[in-house]
Structures are given as C-alpha cells and as structure tokens.
Design a protein around this nucleic acid. Structure first.
Lengths: 198, 198
DNA sequence: GTCTATAAGGTGATAGAC
DNA sequence: GTCTATCACCTTATAGAC
C-alpha cells in the first residue's frame, strides 16, 4: 500500500468519524503511521485533504443503480432489491450518512461542486412509479414522496442510533441490533403495504 | 433581558448551528454583544456552556406528550395529532435534530447523563398500538417499528435537506418547500395506509 | 519522500483594572 | 459585572536536513 493510500485511508477514518472541525491533522498522521509534514506534502492543506475524502464519500453514498434499473423494470421488485442492498452498504459504513449530512449542513454550497450529484437515477424511478400507478399495481403516490420515504426509513436508524437505543430500547444495545437485523423486511413491508391500492 | 439570557440565546444559536467543535467562544460573545471574558464569568468553561445548551435542546426535542395521550387514547388519532405537531416544532428549529444527533454521535455517553431521556412515553404508545391491533383496527406491527418509522419520516427531510433539495428537486428550493408544506399529510397517509389491516 | 524543528496564527481561559 | 490585556496551549502549515 502506497503512502498516499495510507493517508487517504487514515483521513477517511478520522474525517468520517469526527467531521472537518473535529478531525486533527495529528490524529490522521498517527492513524496513518506517519508525521504531519507528510500530509501536507501529499495534500497541500487540511481543506484539500478533506475535499478529497468528502467527494469520495459523497459519490459512494449515492448508489449507482443503473444496472438494477435496467434489469428489473418494476418498482415493487426494485424496492425489494434496493432496501436490503442499501441497508447493507450503510451497515458497513454506519457513520457515512451522519458525516455527509453534517458537513452539507455546515456548508450546503459544497454539494453544487459535485457533478455526480446528478447521478441518482431519479427520473428512471419516476417512470417506474408512474407506470405502476397507471397499471393500478400501487395506489397513487408522488414519486418524490416514495423515494424520500424509502431513504428516510433506511438511513434514519443509523443517524439516530444513540437516541433510539436509549429511548426506545432502554439502553439495551442488543435490542437495537436485533431491531436492525429485521429492519430490511420491516421497511419493505411498511412501504409495500402503504402502496396497496385503495 | 439579563446578560445571562443574552449569553444563553447566543450560545444556543451558535452551538446548534455549528456544533461543539465548530462553535467559537468569540463568535458566541459577538452574537451576545459582550466579550469573551464574560462568558467565562457566567459559565466557567466552553464545555459547561455547551452542556447547558445541549441539555436544554435534548429536553426540547423529546416532546412531552402525556396530555395528548390521556385525552386521545387511540393510536390513529394520536398519529394524526403528533405528526403535524412535531413537524411544526422542527420547522421552527430546523437545525435541532442534526445538532442533537451529531453531538450524540460524537459522544454517545452524554445521553446517559440526561435523566429526562426516559421522558418519552413509549410504553403508553405501546399499549395504544397493541390495543388497536387486538381490535383489528390496524394490521400487526411491532410498536418499535411504528414509532421509529414515524420519527424517521418526520425528521429525515430536515437533516437531509441539502441532499434532497439538490438530488430529488434538482436544486430548486421552491420545490423542496412545496414538498415540505404537504409533508404532514403525506406522512400521515403513508403511515395510515401501511397500517390498514391485511 | 520522509523526517525534525519551528513558525504563525488561533482559541480557551485568566488576571486585574474599573 | 464588565472590560482590556495577556497567557498558555493547540493546530495548521512550512523550512530545511537527510
């Protein structure tokens, strides 16, 4: 592994966990097993290093769905595929949503510079949803609502984990983990039952 | 308004917006129209000032629902009451959820010290939900799922606003605001339709 | 490329006059 | 109670040796 890769890995770990302000160059250097000066040799400044990490993270969190959308041209099947897929991804990167949303909240203009923001195939999904409505497979919904609801149900439990664990599950970590293990099925059931034609 | 109140108001504004690390004592002093030394005179340290603000914010974000639960002992009516009520509260404090969740993510142990964490009447809600299931008013759901889903659908759009605005609504602020204006009805409809008996 | 040493500026906190 | 001045430390960034 090259030094640059070591730096990026260390920076990713520290930035995602602590944010731009909370992360310290010394901690990143320690994590990478090098000294601070080398960080500046590879990436001129903390801001530039952060930009690198944030851009990478942002592109990751927007799933590339083109393939699955071509193959499975049915919104119900798509939901059944997407929810466990995305849930599984976030399970492996549980701090990523909080990181992205916190930094975007601090500096919303940052998103404008990310060309890949347009990468999410919302328009393709819209077509699928409208088709399912027309065929009376599902009740009428605004496509925007359906997509946002799906994301909310998937992402929120990670971002709000401490509150959920403490207030809903009375501090029992095990209860939270048990809840999350069944989460994909619960989300799918919630969405699909809510979509049943009236 | 006393000096202490001015300080608390300024600190709330700055801390909620920028977090513990992002907030600077100088900025709080400027916001309050005083100097840094006075901050330390009233609150010994930045951490103590932050604790004050965070505790206050945390108690605010856990709605006191006892009254509404006594009067309206029906889970459907409760949902119809709670969603617009809570949505309206967050609309007035749009950065509060992000603030709480980010700081709890940085320091989850902090929640243990907040006795009022037990204030959320989850058990009362559980009774209502179980009763509605038994009477076949709604389909079977785990009470935990229903509560978490309701919170997720309500809170997520605020926390993820920059992403939603850019990716779903193509950067059109107006479209996001229009979406949020109808949000209460959309959430209620999503939840209640998903609860229809099978 | 990698290191040590250090500069330059910011930040929380205190001393002391009024 | 409120201010100015200042300390002590931390943090980013650079200089310069190897």
């Amino acid at each position: 592994m090259t030094t640059e890769e070591q730096i990026v890995n260390a920076a990713r770990k520290v930035f995602v966990r602590k944010g731009l302000q909370g992360a310290k160059m010394q901690e990143i250097a320690d994590e990478a097993g090098i000294n601070k000066a080398l960080l500046h040799y590879y990436f001129r400044s903390k801001d530039k290093l952060f930009d690198h990490i944030f851009t990478e993270a942002f592109q990751q969190i927007i799933p590339s769905l083109r393939q699955s959308l071509n193959e499975k041209a049915d919104i119900v099947i798509f939901i059944q595929f997407f929810v466990p897929f995305y849930l599984n991804f976030i399970q492996k990167n549980p701090y990523l949503p909080q990181f992205i949303m916190h930094e975007l909240s601090q500096n919303p203009e940052r998103i404008a510079g990310l060309a890949h923001a347009q990468n999410f195939p919302f328009d393709s999904l819209k077509v699928l949803i409208d088709k399912a409505i027309k065929e009376q497979q599902i009740r009428f919904v605004e496509p925007e609502n359906l997509i946002i609801n799906m994301l909310a149900l998937t992402i929120f439990p990670f971002v709000a984990r401490p509150m959920i664990e403490q207030i809903i599950f009375k501090g029992k970590q095990e209860a939270y983990e048990n809840f999350m293990q069944k989460r994909a099925d619960d989300i799918i059931q919630t969405i699909l039952t809510s979509l049943r034609p009236i």
